[in-house]
Structures are given as structure tokens and as C-alpha cells.
Design a protein around this nucleic acid. Structure first.
Length: 147
DNA sequence: GCCAACGTTGGC
DNA sequence: GCCAACGTTGGC
């Protein structure tokens, strides 16, 4: 899961009550479908810092609440407001994630791109813009072995 | 259903 | 700040 550290970095997650936060503001259907349909309690996710000096994986979090409507889409005062999403038929979903750990160092995008084992990882593919993407178990284990 | 115009993401 | 690569919108 990608987040801009200027907006919400891993330290912001650590500082939340219960070290848990809802992953709001996703307005992309592919990413929505993953949160709504696929991500289950106990699933672990890499926390990725994007759009910053050193883009890369900085830590691990865990899904603690499965897909439910992104209520910010209902709030006209919020920047993520979407008039097409109604409480009776929500268009956007989110999950809650809880901090698990920081990695001992940042696994930079640059570094991840250098490993043939990760060539199919969506993150390193050209033009990728998805903010949430799947990681296979072998990919997960390999990435952790780099730490 | 096509596709041009536009907006966004995000690395660099 | 630039711009490639997408996704979305909306006229036709």
C-alpha cells in the first residue's frame, strides 16, 4: 500500500490511537476491489512511501478490519467527497490497517528494480500507478530477505 | 463504442 | 518542475 509520507507516512500510523487507521481516499476501482473483496483480517501489507526523496518500502502493517464504505466520500466538506457515492450504495471502500513494524532500513524502489526475482511485481513495472497492489508469497519472502 | 481532451500519479 | 503513463470524462 502506497502513501505519501507528506500526507500520511508510517510514523503517522504509529502515532494513531491503537496504531491503527482507516485507509481512506482511494479513488481507483482496481484498488477499491482489492480492499472490498480480497484483503482479509490478518493479511500483512508492505507500507510504501511514494512521491518523496527516497521512494520505497519502509514497514509492515496488518489488515484489522475488512472492506467497508469509505465514509469520507459522503462528506461534502472533505477533499475526497464523491457525490456519486451514496451511503445506501457506496462506491468506495477502505480497510483498517494496524502498524506491525518498521523495516530496519528502507528498501528503495531503485533497489527493488534491480532484482530479477521481482520483475513481475506490479510496483516495478513501467508506468505503474496503482496505490494498492498484490504481492505474492515468494515475492514477499524475497523482499524481506533483502532487509 | 470510439477517442480526444483532460486530470492524476509518481519517479526522476 | 517535467513529463510518461494511465484512468476518466463526455461529445459524437
Amino acid at each position: 500500500m502506497k502513501s505519501e509520507p507528506n500526507e500520511f507516512g508510517i510514523d503517522d500510523l504509529i502515532n494513531k490511537s491503537g496504531q491503527t487507521e482507516h485507509w481512506d481516499g482511494v479513488r481507483n476501482y482496481q484498488a477499491r476491489n482489492m480492499m472490498r473483496d480480497q484483503m482479509k483480517c490478518g493479511d500483512r501489507v508492505f507500507f510504501y512511501h511514494s512521491n518523496c526523496d527516497e521512494p520505497g518500502i519502509v514497514g509492515i502493517a496488518e489488515v484489522v478490519r475488512e472492506g467497508y464504505p469509505d465514509f469520507l466520500a459522503f462528506d461534502p466538506a472533505d477533499k475526497h467527497f464523491d457525490p456519486k457515492s451514496k451511503p445506501e450504495q457506496p462506491r468506495w471502500f477502505m480497510v483498517d490497517v494496524k502498524f506491525v513494524k518498521k523495516l530496519t532500513r528502507t528498501l528503495t524502489l531503485k533497489e527493488l528494480k534491480q532484482h530479477a526475482e521481482l520483475q513481475d511485481l506490479a510496483l516495478v513495472r513501467r508506468g505503474n500507478r496503482l496505490s494498492i497492489m498484490p504481492v505474492s508469497e515468494p515475492q514477499w519472502d524475497f523482499i524481506l530477505s533483502l532487509e
